[in-house]
Every structure is written in structure tokens, then in C-alpha cells.
């Protein structure tokens, strides 16, 4: 089937297999390898992308379901060489080790700060709580999100 959607701000069209997940189509048909897969059951959050600005799990959604919608992947965050403030915050605060969970964590943070620019610690834990990181122990992820909130606020002033 013909899929038409807005992908990282650009209108894209592709012929896709109707039974493929959004995760597979992003990685294989659009060659956007930044979105990762692990559990393929919507639990771990490695495949988090934004659908019309809201975080969803790309592994448990058919690409067909995103017809006409807007998707943001991790590739859509930086502008050229300039990292998104949320990306900068993660790099500066050791918010990643192996990096596999990072795209999902970044997109979830972007969505959180869009909804709630000054989240409390509890609100961060609640929002990011479902996304799994096996390396960091989460302390530096929490620190990164808090730093990101400050950076995003600064950037919007």
C-alpha cells in the first residue's frame, strides 16, 4: 500500500507492506536506523517515536495506522550539526552509556518538556518510568532530563 506521512517535518511517500510495523518501516523502508527495537511488545521503549507530537511505541503500531500523520524520530531532533538541547543535556550529564535506549529516552524527554516545561522529579519518573536503560542505573538520565528542562527553557527565552 501507499503510505504518505510527514516524517521529521517532510512529506514522504513509500510503497509499504500493509502488515509491517512502524518500527520496521522506519528502519527498513525509510532507512532511519536511529529507532531501535528490543522487546517488540511495547514495554522497553527503545522504539519510542513521536506521533503527532506524542510518544508511542513504534513496535506495536502498524505503519499503515500512521497514514497522513506526523512522525518524529531521533533523526529529526538535531538541526544539522546543532544538537537539540535535550541531546546536549544527555551528552553533558552522562545520560547514556551504550546508547541503545537513548533515542527513546530523548524523544520521551522532548514530549515531556513540551507538555510540562518544569517537571518535578516525580513527574519525570512517572513519564519516563516505562523506558528501560540497562547501563546507567538511571541517575544520570534523571539528571539529564532536569538539565534538559533548564536548557529548553533557556533556548525559548
Amino acid at each position: 500500500m501507499q503510505l504518505e506521512l510527514t516524517l521529521n517535518g517532510k512529506t514522504e511517500r513509500r510503497e509499504i507492506a500493509p502488515h509491517h510495523t512502524l518500527l520496521d518501516v522506519l528502519r527498513d523502508d525509510f532507512n532511519l536506523k536511529g529507532t531501535k527495537g528490543y522487546c517488540h511488545s511495547g514495554v522497553c521503549g527503545a522504539c519510542t517515536v513521536l506521533l503527532d507530537g506524542k510518544p508511542i511505541s513504534a513496535c506495536i503500531m502498524l505503519a499503515s495506522q500512521t497514514q497522513g500523520k506526523s512522525i518524529t524520530t531521533v533523526e529529526g531532533l538535531a538541526e544539522g550539526e546543532n544538537l537539540h538541547p535535550v541531546q546536549r543535556a544527555f551528552v553533558e550529564n552522562f545520560g547514556l552509556q551504550c546508547g541503545y535506549c537513548t533515542p527513546g529516552m530523548l524523544l520521551l524527554t522532548v514530549a515531556l518538556l513540551e507538555e510540562n516545561p518544569e517537571p518535578s522529579k516525580e513527574e519525570i519518573v512517572d513519564y519516563l518510568g516505562g523506558n528501560i536503560c540497562r547501563c546507567t542505573g538511571y541517575a544520570n538520565i534523571l539528571k539529564s532530563v532536569q538539565a534538559a528542562a533548564a536548557l529548553v527553557k533557556e533556548a525559548s527565552l
Binding site: 519525570i124 519518573v125 519516563l128 518510568g129 523506558n131 528501560i132 540497562r134 538511571y138 541517575a139 538520565i141
Partner: peptide
């Protein structure tokens, strides 16, 4: 289940 931010 695996440890999450809630477990930290």
C-alpha cells in the same frame, strides 16, 4: 519486569 526509573 526489569528495573526502571521507579526502582532507582
Amino acid at each position: 519486569p526489569l528495573p526502571t526509573l521507579h526502582t532507582m
